[in-house]
Design a protein around this nucleic acid. Sequence first.
DNA 1: TGCTTTGTTCGAGTTTTGTCGAACAATATG
DNA 2: CATATTGTTCGACAAAACTCGAACAAAGCA
Lengths: 99, 99
Amino acid sequence: MAAYDHPDPATFELILVLRALADPARLDIVRHLGRVGEANCATLIGTRPKSSMSHHFQVLRESGVLRTRIEGVQHRNSLRFEELDARFPGLMTAILNAA
Amino acid sequence: MAAYDHPDPATFELILVLRALADPARLDIVRHLGRVGEANCATLIGTRPKSSMSHHFQVLRESGVLRTRIEGVQHRNSLRFEELDARFPGLMTAILNAA
DNA sequence: TGCTTTGTTCGAGTTTTGTCGAACAATATG
DNA sequence: CATATTGTTCGACAAAACTCGAACAAAGCA
């Protein structure tokens, strides 16, 4: 498996980040990653099928919200917190702290 | 025209707020209101038809992002900044400050 | 090599969301 | 009252997004 493309922080777009966050499954993923730091896809799948989750990871990745590191057969995801915070200060903090 | 219903801050939902913000037209409206404080609908209409804008105002209103005050024939809109900030600290500030 | 694990890609179907003209409602003003 | 102004509602259509099974791909291991 080739490594994923991740957008450069300079090209992050607020509207894409907001769209990525504006879905229950993805917001769950983001919050989970906010707590545990890094997790592979399987860990983050609840009852949803793999193909749905793969789609959500793609949306989050392409908007810049998370990065996916490949290690063997597992894909390890983590928030791009510092980069997001540099570009949109306070945004992710607000999301992660929201009730 | 009867006054609008505005949701109570206790019932604000992050996912609805994010969905409301995750649209170019609505993000424009929000940012404009962030600058000018209050504006009627006509002021905020660019090239889009009234019916489209009316829809966007409804989405923003129902999510709690803005309030609409009726004065004569005009509908004056303003952000519910304090209430949003109390419920989701830092969120609107981050949105309004974003590049 | 064959099997298992982990996750992607494809394609089709469903649902949600946005768009916008036309008709309508409320208020003000001549 | 007639007309203009401001904005909503309705309905139909278009576009975007989510869902998910099935087939596929890569890596590791027996």
